[in-house]
């Protein structure tokens, strides 16, 4: 009987690898292999029209990258965008989740409304907001003028000092619902008894939030922060559609794609891509270790 069982177990294990093989094969083909090639290209002078015929240039591309102020501008834009948009999304998302968590009529409708920005394609969101923020005919300028908050229309998208803020505004609008839904899921499993105890202790709503709610939803908030940060660091669509390749807003992804496709510099563009990959890998590693350490402490 034992022999039969272990035979079955062996058969199952063999079948497991057989079941995994197609998925692993496809993933190796579309993720592993292209990543290796990109890293390889970053040490060459390959171009798009002759991707095969290339020479080895060592660290030359990375040296050029380090000397390009436009690249460092892109790095700064990306980090600034990620930090500001994720902060706003988490704060705003928590406020919205707390509101949605209250007992009230029409909560289902409200939650449905939250899903609309999430469902709209990023490209469409960018175009919609591009139109709303239009410097002459945009509805935002019309409202600001009517309220007397500005004396002349503001060129939100064209003005270099404002363009990145416009991009942030669109991202916050589009992804806050995702954060809110994550936080809401965490809020809905919190035990009610804790709040009754807090009321007995006279903690008040604000005290209860900081002493009870916040510590309990912190794991969900961490997940939201990590997911959103990783997404924000590789942002491409929003900037590209709203402001094109403009230096004022170009993220690392926009810069790398411009080099790769528009300027056909596969070697140099791959170096920028590799750099972005390393940054994201580092952030992921830090996030995972930070998350673990916190979990162990409790």
């Amino acid at each position: 009987m034992a022999g039969l069982a272990s035979g079955l177990e062996r058969q199952r294990r063999r079948a497991a690898w057989l079941f995994l093989a197609p998925m692993l094969g496809v993933l190796a083909l579309v993720a592993g292999w292209p990543l290796l090639r990109t890293v390889y290209f970053s040490f060459t002078d390959a171009t798009l029209y002759d991707i095969g015929g290339h020479g080895f240039v060592g660290l030359g591309n990375f040296r050029l990258l380090a000397a390009d102020p436009n690249w460092w501008r892109a790095v700064w834009n990306t980090l600034f965008f990620a930090a500001v948009s994720v902060t706003l999304e988490v704060v705003l998302g928590t406020v919205i989740a707390l509101t949605l968590n209250a007992q009230m009529r029409g909560r289902g409708l409200l939650r449905a409304a939250m899903l609309i920005p999430w469902a709209i394609p990023t490209v469409v969101s960018a175009q919609m907001w591009g139109w709303m923020l239009h410097d002459q005919f945009g509805v935002v300028n019309a409202v600001l003028l009517a309220l007397g908050l500005v004396s002349e229309p503001v060129a939100f998208v064209a003005e270099p000092s404002l363009a990145l803020w416009a991009v942030i505004a669109v991202d916050v609008w589009k992804t806050t619902p995702f954060v809110a839904l994550l936080v809401l899921a965490a809020l809905q499993v919190l035990p009610k008894e804790l709040y009754e105890a807090a009321e007995v202790d006279g903690l008040g709503p604000v005290g209860a939030f900081f002493r009870i709610t916040l510590p309990l939803i912190r794991p969900a908030l961490m997940v939201a922060v990590i997911f959103r940060t990783l997404d924000a660091l590789r942002v491409f669509d929003l900037m590209f559609v709203l402001t094109g390749n403009s230096r004022a807003t170009a993220s690392m992804s926009v810069y790398a794609r411009q080099q790769l496709v528009d300027f056909q510099e596969v070697g140099y563009g791959s170096a920028a891509s590799t750099f972005l990959f390393l940054i994201i890998a580092a952030v992921t590693a830090v996030a995972i270790t930070a998350g673990r350490v916190r979990l162990d402490n409790r």
Binding site: A31, W33, F236, R257, G269, F277, A281
Partner: peptide, 29 residues
Amino acid sequence: FRGRTPLLLAILGVSMFPQVAVLSGMFEL
């Protein structure tokens, strides 16, 4: 089976890839 958890984590790791990081390799492919 042996290696299940590391393999699952590796697959999760792929979801962190920025698309632009595979762009030139994918283009060639």
